[in-house]
Amino acid sequence: MNIEVTIFLLRLLAGLCLAGFLLALFAIIWRNAGAAVYQPAAAGAMHGYLVCEQPALAGDALRCSLRPIVTLGRAEGNTVVIRDDFASANHARIVLEGGKWWLEDRGSRNGTQLNGETILRRTILTGGDEIGIGKYRYRLHLNQEHMTM
């Protein structure tokens, strides 16, 4: 076979491989981006509830349905009253904004944990997140069937 033809075919092969490699990379990005959109969409549930997992409680204190503003703190009058020395009077709150649930710290002394990390600014919540205040641990449950987004 002619040398020039061979070289041309090899270049074509190399070019196709490059294109294939890039296509595969973009396919992976596409699927990951799709999955990433899917997760915040799941967070757009309008209804849900908080469950206190730690320490074990009974009755009303165990479960609290989410409403547009849920306040947490030691002071009476909070939606969720936390009887813990490490909780501030007005410790944190969960608000519904733009179809998403946000966790905000209200200048508490000991901070609010989200999945074991102290939050630095208001943070989007997703179903299954764990909110920690003092020694209390709350699990967030969001109802997937009420998705509105």
């Binding site: 699927r31 799709g34 899917y38 969409a41 799941a42």
Partner: peptide, 9 residues
């Protein structure tokens, strides 16, 4: 929006 992404995934 969610139905769209759901099918994609």
């Amino acid at each position: 929006c969610s139905t769209l992404t759901r099918t994609d995934v």
